[in-house]
Design a binder for these strands. Sequence first.
DNA 1: TTGAAAGCGCTAACAA
DNA 2: TTGTTAGCGCTTTCAA
Lengths: 331, 331
Amino acid sequence: MTIRDVAELAQVSTATVSRALSGAKPVSPAVVDQVRRAADELGYAGNGIASALRRSRTDTVGMVVPSIANPFFTGLVEHVEHALQDAGRQLFLCSSRSDPELEAQRLRSLVARQVDGIIISPVHGSLSTTAVRRAADELPLVQVDRYVTGVDSDWVGVDDDAALELVMEHLADRGVRSAAFVSSQLTNSSTELRVAGFHRHAERLGIAVREEDVLLGEYSIEWGRQAAVTLLAAGPRPDAVVCADDLIALGMLQACAAAGVDVPRDLLVTGFDDIPFAALSHPPLTTVRQPQAEIAAEAVRLLSRVLGAQEAPPSRVALRPSLTVRSSTSR
Amino acid sequence: MTIRDVAELAQVSTATVSRALSGAKPVSPAVVDQVRRAADELGYAGNGIASALRRSRTDTVGMVVPSIANPFFTGLVEHVEHALQDAGRQLFLCSSRSDPELEAQRLRSLVARQVDGIIISPVHGSLSTTAVRRAADELPLVQVDRYVTGVDSDWVGVDDDAALELVMEHLADRGVRSAAFVSSQLTNSSTELRVAGFHRHAERLGIAVREEDVLLGEYSIEWGRQAAVTLLAAGPRPDAVVCADDLIALGMLQACAAAGVDVPRDLLVTGFDDIPFAALSHPPLTTVRQPQAEIAAEAVRLLSRVLGAQEAPPSRVALRPSLTVRSSTSR
DNA sequence: TTGAAAGCGCTAACAA
DNA sequence: TTGTTAGCGCTTTCAA
């Protein structure tokens, strides 16, 4: 079942069938009708692979995220898919499962599949560099949320320093004099910026931070639980725990409840991302809201700019976050 | 940068380059070396589209799920991706956003892209039928979790009746005499089976169900909240609320807390799926655990069977669920 | 073990 | 407006 079968049945050339069905070039209405009828009759679907080879474009954008178990990334993906659809493009989604090797493999695969462009949130600030650069050399590429150093590509994300300013000022307003920070390992840009922001604003606001109260693990509920246990076992309890994402914060809240530590009476806790589940915890979580839809829209816009072959210096767009205040910080 | 460039540099034919790089056909070690060197030097990546056209296979499986915001589906996707990787295949993920039209479009797109097979959790029991059948006519196709009527394809999911048996017997053990059910509209197989199972086992166990206490909306946190408001406003409160998925149950718990209804003292609540966040609510949620990894593995196995062109009558595999008991049902 | 050559299904020049 | 024709880059006969 190919375009030739349709052409024969419709008594026209294959070129005409192609033009009639794609609607790109002028074809007389009568012939279009004739071709459509023939195609319908045969149930002709078209071969996207052959078309892609000939046109050297796939109308597909690849996206690589560290995890699809994290609602922050799935939210981002949904918005990107939406934005892409308006541009008539499809999304090819890959998860790198926070593994630089798997990520490199995914990127190679996307390049081989000739996607038109790539949107990536790289796993690691340095270990991802080579693979990201290699992909960026072949294709338009935009980084979101996190970025690797040493690749000249566009980036969109949130202003992490501004986010921690919001958090720390809010905590200072609540009378917090000492704070802990729980995060993933410092292996990527946004994590680094969050830790740096935490320290900077803590110092500025006179909030004490003990070195052993900065705990680095990974972005997961389980690590939040473990960190809570560690934190509660060690010496004097700080007034607040600032978490680098909501998964960590939710694990933290659960472990606190289990340990009989009342949040917010005994301890304030904040998160980062404002995933849908942040409103459902006990107590509901105060957290930084990321402008997900805007990040997605901007990523797609940047990519389209590059796809349109418009040369421009790489943009770095840091969008302003806001703070969603809930009971985990309201005494 | 094509295979010809590599061939020229390595002083061999394009056929030899292809054979050397794919490793499929015998090539002398010296030549392989020579070709590899040339490919590396040029940074040759290969064109998957051209290869796919020639071989008429893409080593890619498409997956279509109703939502990627629902952790149940993302969990399933992760397991499928894992299982597929072992078979050297990639996953092309699409979300139908619970829209049969969008779903039909995604399916057409996957067929056009010549994926080797499709794994789908169809949106709607009847509105999805045509699109699913059309895809199944072209390609190997396996349905997971939900299925449409009237398509002869394999299916893997959970035994919904057995699941509701577990839930209802657990509730009966807890002394429940009356129960409500909150679910999505009855537009797909598993939802129907869950409602039917609820009624059947309620009757069998002598648990009273008032008609107005069966609320149908959608699988979302928000609907869980709304249903709670409706339920709490209307007449005498039942002893328990059985929810058809965890999102609904989590919304329900939140709204109960807000309304001052103490779970489990005043009301028992159960969910379905056992997503990671079900353990973090207040109180933690009693829920049906779906054997996600097994469902995914079985789906991939069934698909591989069909891909291997082994004719077999369609299988319907209903895996046994288990019950995760937490505080939302423990007085 | 290697090379020459055909052609996967489609679309874009070019010509009519 | 339509047809003819030449490939897109690759793999796979077939022949050597």
